[in-house]
Design a protein around this nucleic acid. Structure first.
Length: 595
RNA sequence: GCUCUCGUAGUUCAAUGGAUAGAACGGAGGUUUCCUAAACCUUAGAUUUGGGUUCGAUUCCCAGCGAGAGUACCA
């Protein structure tokens, strides 16, 4: 039982004994005592004041006295207003550290056969352009969330739905046919996703030019957008695609394969992966069937023009289009189809969609529709909705060329890491491979931490220049601390220093504070799983590292003359290193042994 | 118009309804005969406005102001 639980229970007993009131122990949550006050843990006694019918400090004093008398772990107390600050028996913390160090799982739970299965959908790219900064946030959040859910004992299936069909793909295909001269990624010396992205832009430029021409002849903008020859050609190609035209399908497959090869490279560098990938080209027809089923059973209705709708006004929403008047499917239709296939493949208990917050309404509707269609997890599906990534100048706009490309960004982070390391002399004596690896780990760590430390729901600003910062609240700051601990342990091992300490050792305040933080880790992991928040882990590990650095600065480890104290500090450092590795692992951030 | 987010130092981010709202960057100043100075210390600087609930509100409720997103045949 943790010290928090012991204290909660003891306090509940005290309230019962003193005031005759049953107060549930789980509602009493001790907090870490503020630095300015003496003590380790604090209990807020305001909730008991009414039952006690006494002043808050009197209540705090009475409970404090009871605890000192009846609870072995409590050594002393002081009461400030309604705050009861409790001093825990110092030697108790040595036991806590030993327990943490000896329990290899650090509170991580393992999935068993009957654990619930959670499927996490993330990434979900279009195959007409390379991944950008927005995708980076999505991928990092999704991957980290999967790690966190695993650590909380869920079976996790990571999945990706690829938007591989539609008029946007046809645009790239047409541009390639017209102006590509049979170029391939090999010939161009370019990643496939970037090559296709270039053709998509090329199409758009010509399309815009055509629109302008038509407008000069007196056509409205809206009309010209529909009447431009290129867009008509694209729609014609989509029809051919749907009809299974061999040549269109051949080009489509070839170009998509180029894109997938490019995506794979980007995913690999980002350090994310998937257990199962779905393709929209396989799911949109299934969705259509499912919608028609719903139409037959009266769940949906058909309008005069032939389009199919769901009426959600009874649920406080609007009517929602499910099939166009020409019978083709929309986004929602595809998501329904994907849901069906997924449920055939896996016994899903919980579904989490990692998708940007501009689609909040879409998922509200999807949840209702899946529920109506009989998916048991439909009603409780989680839309892990994250905010936009903005640049200092504002939103990223692809047509204004302000989109930050994922590959370029990673290149820049890594090369900056290398330059900074070299400047500091950190790479002296490294082989080229070692230098490459350190630069990669540090550069990627900076990027990942920068994005994951922010509350996912919030929009965030990404300043390409300032984000490549290796000081302060950053990934490299955490990695550096880890590397320094490893260095310390190597030196201790060389010197043959013993790391066993006597259980009766009484740590000082700073050491106790660090042990307390370590003891909190399992609760943080559990909370991160409940609230789907990688940021909670990030902030935890930063606080831990910050405090350890101060400790490291103020006290010597290897040069401490008291062997018992030295052993305790080294054990503490080693355990902190382990927890840093576990915590950053949940975020998908690597930590280097030296840097 | 309607719906949903969000609003905290100059900037980027924190704060299960708890004590004097924490960090970092940037600014000013300092620490290296000692385990990695990518570190540490000192200093200045903030809750959009007005009500309400509460012993206590950045947090919950209402209204205003401001920013963003969605709004039915785009994905």
């Amino acid at each position: 039982m943790s010290i928090d639980n012991i204290l909660s229970q003891a306090t509940a007993d005290a309230v019962k004994a003193l005031y005759g009131v049953d107060f549930p122990a789980e509602k009493i949550v001790p907090q870490t005592t503020k630095r300015e006050f003496e003590g380790n843990l604090t209990i807020v006694v305001f909730p008991f004041v009414k039952a006690a019918r006494k002043a808050p400090d009197a209540v705090a004093a009475e409970i404090g006295e009871y605890l000192v008398k009846n609870c072995d772990a409590v050594k002393a107390f002081n009461a400030v207003k309604g705050f009861l600050n409790i001093v825990i028996e110092p030697s108790f913390w040595a036991k806590v550290l030993t327990n943490i160090a000896e329990t290899a799982d650090y509170g991580f739970r393992k999935a068993s056969a009957d654990s619930p299965l959670v499927m996490i959908e993330y990434s979900s790219p279009n195959t007409n352009k390379p991944l950008h900064l927005g995708h980076v946030r999505n991928n990092l959040l999704g991957f980290s969330l999967a790690n966190i859910m695993k650590a909380n004992g869920y079976k996790v299936v990571k999945t990706n739905i690829v938007n591989d069909r539609g008029v946007h793909i046809c645009k790239s295909m047409i541009a390639w046919q017209r102006w590509g001269n049979g170029i391939t990624p090999e010939k161009a010396g370019k990643k496939g996703d970037h090559l296709i992205g270039d053709f998509y832009v090329l199409f758009d430029q010509h399309y815009k030019a055509e629109m302008k021409e038509l407008q000069a002849k007196g056509m409205s903008e809206e009309e010209s957008a529909k009447e431009a020859p290129l867009i008509k050609e694209a729609h014609a190609m989509l029809e051919k695609w749907e009809a299974g035209d061999a040549e269109v399908r051949r080009i489509w497959k070839m170009m998509n394969d180029w894109v997938y090869a490019g995506f794979d490279e980007t995913y690999h560098r980002l350090g994310v992966d998937f257990d199962k990938i779905y393709y929209e080209s396989n799911t949109y027809l299934v969705g259509k069937e499912k919608v028609l089923e719903g139409l037959n059973s009266g769940l949906f209705f058909r309008k005069d023009d032939g389009s199919v709708w769901a009426d959600l006004t009874a649920d406080g929403l609007d009517q929602k289009l499910l099939l166009r008047s020409d019978g083709t499917s929309v986004y929602m239709t595809q998501d329904i189809g994907t849901a069906k296939l997924r449920f055939q493949d896996f016994p899903i208990d919980k579904m989490i969609y990692v998708v940007g917050n501009e689609q909040n309404y879409h998922f509200q509707v999807l949840s209702l529709l899946l529920d109506k269609l009989g998916f048991k997890w439909g009603k409780d599906l989680v839309h892990f909705s994250y905010g936009m990534v903005e640049l200092p100048e504002g939103k990223m706009k692809s047509r204004e060329g302000t989109v930050v490309d994922a590959d370029d960004l990673m290149d820049e982070m890594i090369s900056t890491a290398r330059a900074t390391s070299a400047e500091l002399g950190k790479l002296d004596g490294c082989t080229k491979d070692e230098a490459d690896n350190i630069s990669r780990i540090v550069g990627m760590g900076a990027l990942k931490y920068f994005i994951l430390k922010v509350d996912p729901r919030k929009n965030m600003t990404f300043n390409p220049k300032e984000s490549i910062d290796f000081n302060g609240n950053t990934g490299p700051f955490i990695q550096y601390t880890y590397a320094r601990i490893q260095s310390l342990l190597r030196k201790a091992a060389e010197a043959g220093v013993n790391m066993d300490f006597t259980p009766s050792i009484e740590p000082n305040d700073k050491e106790i504070s660090l042990v307390q933080r370590l003891a909190d880790f399992p609760a943080i992991v559990a909370e991160a799983g409940r609230s789907y928040s990688p940021a909670l882990i990030a902030n935890f590990v930063y606080d831990l590292v910050k405090e350890y650095n101060q400790f490291y600065h103020d006290y010597s480890m290897l040069k401490e003359s008291d062997e018992n104290v030295r052993a305790f500090r080294l054990r503490l450092s080693a355990t902190i290193g382990d927890i840093i590795r576990r915590a950053t692992g949940l975020l998908g951030i690597e930590v280097p042994d030296r840097m």
